[in-house]
């Protein structure tokens, strides 16, 4: 279903059911969103595996810069990004590690785009990524390409699609071909 949406988007913007959108306006409206909770389902397509991996859980966003991803299935863990600090907790092994986001460039490459978008922080987003937008207010899609190393080593493109001021899906394309697609529901979109 999602793939179809993506394909449709690739052939051009849908008939303009709403006003034309530019990045600044989108960012502003996203910035105004306060805290909310949603559920996610994530599918990872890895080259070394011949079947996708699926995980699900909840996402909690607290303006302006706190993002929590609590995975329940298949392995309980949580990732909390608060400003500059990243906390990974592996509930199965009862391990908790905290570090600065810059120390884990791999994770930063993945997470920075999502967090900045949720916060409506165009400045940070532009610093790390080339930003392109297509779609309209009802259905938009942000395309982010990392500008510099080391993020370029890991991620080739991040595609965030949503409707109005809510995000619906996040797709991350890694260098090397691996892909992960996260669908977000229950956040009022």
């Amino acid at each position: 279903m999602l793939a179809a949406l993506m394909a449709a988007a690739a052939f051009g913007p849908p008939p303009a059911a709403g006003a034309e959108l530019d990045v600044e306006t989108l960012m502003r409206s996203l910035a105004q969103v306060g805290s909310h909770t949603a559920s996610f389902v994530e599918r990872k397509h890895l080259a070394i595996l011949n079947a996708p991996l699926e995980s699900s859980g909840t996402l909690v966003y607290t303006a302006p810069g706190r993002l929590e991803k609590h995975t329940l299935v298949p392995r309980a863990e949580s990732l909390v990004l608060d400003g500059d600090r990243l906390t990974l907790e592996d509930k199965g092994r009862d391990q908790k590690r905290t570090f600065a986001l810059q120390e884990q460039p791999v994770i930063q490459a993945f997470v920075e785009g999502v967090r900045s978008t949720l916060a409506g922080d165009l400045a940070t987003l532009s610093r790390f990524y080339q930003v392109a937008l297509d779609g309209n207010e009802r259905r938009w899609r942000l395309l982010l390409r990392p500008r510099e190393q080391p993020m370029q080593d890991f991620v080739s493109e991040i595609r965030i699609s949503g409707s109005r001021d809510r995000i619906r899906a996040i797709e991350i394309v890694e260098t090397g071909g691996d892909r992960s697609v996260m669908t977000i529901t229950g956040n009022g979109a």
Partner: peptide, 18 residues
């Protein structure tokens, strides 16, 4: 490792796995 691949540290694990 399968579980780890699906987790937040997946990308890190994926590189070392082979």
């Amino acid at each position: 490792n399968l579980q780890l691949l699906g987790s937040s540290t997946g990308p890190v694990v994926r590189r070392m796995l082979p």
